[in-house]
Design a protein around this nucleic acid. Sequence first.
DNA 1: TATGTTATCTTTACAATGTCAAGATAACGA
DNA 2: TCGTTATCTTGACATTGTAAAGATAACATA
Lengths: 193, 193
Amino acid sequence: MSDNYHHGNLRQALIDAGIKIINESGEASLSLRRAAALCGVSHAAPYAHFKDKDDLIEAIKQSVTEQFMKELTEAVKNSTDAESAIVNMGKSYVSFFIRKPDYFRFLFSNRNVTAHLRPDKTYTEDYPPFVLLKETYLEYLKEKQLQKNEDEQEIEILRIWACAHGLAAIACMSGVVTSFDWEEKLSGDLLLR
Amino acid sequence: MSDNYHHGNLRQALIDAGIKIINESGEASLSLRRAAALCGVSHAAPYAHFKDKDDLIEAIKQSVTEQFMKELTEAVKNSTDAESAIVNMGKSYVSFFIRKPDYFRFLFSNRNVTAHLRPDKTYTEDYPPFVLLKETYLEYLKEKQLQKNEDEQEIEILRIWACAHGLAAIACMSGVVTSFDWEEKLSGDLLLR
DNA sequence: TATGTTATCTTTACAATGTCAAGATAACGA
DNA sequence: TCGTTATCTTGACATTGTAAAGATAACATA
């Protein structure tokens, strides 16, 4: 490949640039032109790889979600039993976003989605982190030999999920992110009763 | 007042216009110029009342939060005891944002806050809805004659809050907002154990 | 009442951005 | 080797936030 034309892998480079911008200056300053500049290409080059800005944002979201999912999976794998796996997953959930509060705002801001038009996959049944929690929870029921009907299961899963997400939200959006020992709180019976 | 100059109460009109835009087309299409146009003034007129766009957004947030707070207070007032007040508050919390999902995205998107620079008051100790929950919770402890140390109290309040907020998030951001009976779920022991 | 002050609004201008169109360049297959 | 196609550049335009300068009206004060 030459030096000017054909960057090599501009698509991935733009995603990485976008992530870098978000980490350094927040989503507000994420622009197609800045990402392009960071990659050393002209301002319209991204349009060869992304339909529009939202399309790039969607790709970045997917990439960040993969990072996120990796940590959650790791947390489950490093647990000895399903019960602690759930707690550890919750810890990882909050911990991930405490370390990267800009990711939280970015992932869950939905700045571009009018919702009526295009609800993204976040939170729905196919959302990988949610699937992981469901599997782990069923494993937990089996381990403890607990019998629950589907309605009870759904409520419990929702409660755990909402709790973890809500705590992450509080942690990320409040000014007290660092002055609060989330790890300790989560190791209590905050998630699982 | 004349017909062209001196709108009368442009500041409030701009806030109302902003809310209208958010409700009709989402936060993405909220612009100073559009709000100004809706008020029938020139595009730079808002600068007599707001420092910049963020300043208007902050004012809108405050206005929406007041609406929100009103419903929460109402829910508490209409309850016979503190325990049901907590549950009803949670119901109202989720219900409010299910009816106005754009408000949820708007209030908690933090599109403009770099967090390091200016964490807004949301979620902090002075946040009125949070204060209301704390008061109600203490009332609940008194009613039930329960003894809990401050740490236990904090955890429980956080759990309730996170749960309500997390459920609202799930409800607002997923595509299944309407196909799920949140009211019923919340009346179960989702919030209070 | 007259006048100076100030708040409010308009006009003009500029930079940043998203996006499109037309063209240039290079990779690649036939 | 040559045509096709993906990739990238250049140029242009509309939208937006925002600043500067000036116009207008409300208002206080003498």
